[in-house]
Design a protein around this nucleic acid. Structure first.
Lengths: 232, 232
DNA sequence: TCAAAAGTGTTGTTGATACACCCATGA
DNA sequence: TCATGGGTGTATCAACAACACTTTTGA
């Protein structure tokens, strides 16, 4: 113990996995991207997207790499959730798993992709049994998503760059599982001054059409600097 | 890859550490418990309390064990913060560290303990340089503590079981680095109905003395069930 | 008797909620 | 012309912020 530099060889070694809870928003519902596991144990069972940390990469690099390898997605909002470290969580060996949750604009994830990568969107309300502790991870991610969305504008990550106010409201309603008054919602979200109204309308949702807006990240960041607190 | 059960032997192995950011509250200030590291590398430098995960223990068990071994403290509020996984964070080898933050009532940590374990309380305002990424961990823990304290009654973990309203207020002022109006603070905290007023007074802080209160966890939990949201 | 901290109410302002009708358009 | 979702304003209520004086007691 008195060497100038220790290589810690007396301490135990562990496998480290990264699992991602991938949220999307489509058809007015909050969804999760899952797939059928491709290796043992639990091959063929429903699972989150995960993989193992490599020697030469940082944890966050691993999270991004694994998301990319399994879904083809890049530059995605991700946040670390928690590390799962129970001894018996994986019957095939001691593996700790760092859970990340990711928000992707569902429109960016086409059918083609989905087939190519064997990925499936499932509604959170009809979530099947997932392997190991993955259902716990989802629960925890959902709690975190709710807390975060209430105080930071990460909801926009789930929408296309241009979106309508009714779309945004429906997203918040899906996240919180509650109905919101559209007048009050519009008033509040617009009063923050972080949305830019465009000239165009989105005609897909109604006869009348709804104006498109864009989230102004710069304005938002200026507000944050001044101590503004984004809340719904 | 087609074995019925894999032992993942093809994947890399890592050392896993746990580091704890230990907050205390004393003399109207938020403090951190640190010590001088006892092994290389960085022996003798200021460090958080940390240790290595063992083969036969879960991550949360490790966090509690390490806190106990290094400080003698048990049954302490702890929450996982984040896992630090940069490649070069420890020059002596690839080690990932799971950071936990802990809240201890400083009065429970006597001078004797402090000497026995070589631990020192330092004010957050005069925090020295800590080893590796430990200063980042502290920053992150402080952010988390502020968010948490605003929405959950974890502040009480930093006070003795019986405390006065002015003490509680001074705790919140220390956490948020701001001054609060004592009439408004008292009104708000009492209106939640989770404090029980005792007959006794604490005479140590003033001539007049201040009534002691106790946090009623059961009442609080009943409120939470009903969807109540604790906020300062 | 004085210094020092504890304790107490009211008012104005702001933000949250509740609520109902007209508008634009494609079919 | 009608069915559908988009868009708008006001009134009430609750929560928050600002603010100054009296009380108790040990020294």
């Amino acid at each position: 113990m008195n060497k100038k530099k220790s290589n810690y060889s007396e301490y135990a070694l562990f496998h480290l996995a990264v699992d991602s809870i991938i949220f999307g928003f489509d058809e007015g519902e909050l969804k999760l991207l899952i797939h059928k596991r491709k290796f043992e144990p639990f091959m063929g069972d429903w699972s989150l997207f995960g993989g193992f940390l490599k020697e030469e990469e940082s944890l966050s690099d691993a999270a991004n790499r694994i998301l990319f390898e399994l879904t083809g997605l890049q530059k995605i909002y991700m946040e670390e959730l928690q590390t799962y470290g129970d001894i018996e969580r994986d019957p095939a060996g001691r593996v700790l798993s760092v859970a990340y949750y990711a928000l992707i604009p569902a429109h960016r994830y086409s059918e083609d992709y989905s087939k190519q990568y064997g990925a499936t969107w499932v509604s959170l309300k009809e979530l099947p049994d997932l392997i190991m502790d993955h259902n716990d991870m989802v629960k925890s991610a959902l709690r975190r998503l709710r807390r975060r969305t209430a105080s930071q504008p990460i909801g926009f990550e789930l929408l296309p760059r241009e979106f309508t106010i009714p779309q945004l409201q429906s997203l918040y309603e899906a996240i919180y599982q509650t109905e919101l008054d559209k007048r009050n919602f519009r008033k509040k979200i617009l009063s923050m001054g972080v949305l830019v109204k465009l000239e165009e309308k989105d005609m897909s949702g109604s006869r009348k059409g709804a104006f498109l807006y864009r989230f102004d990240k710069r304005k938002y960041e200026r507000l944050i600097e001044k101590g503004y607190n984004f809340t719904i």
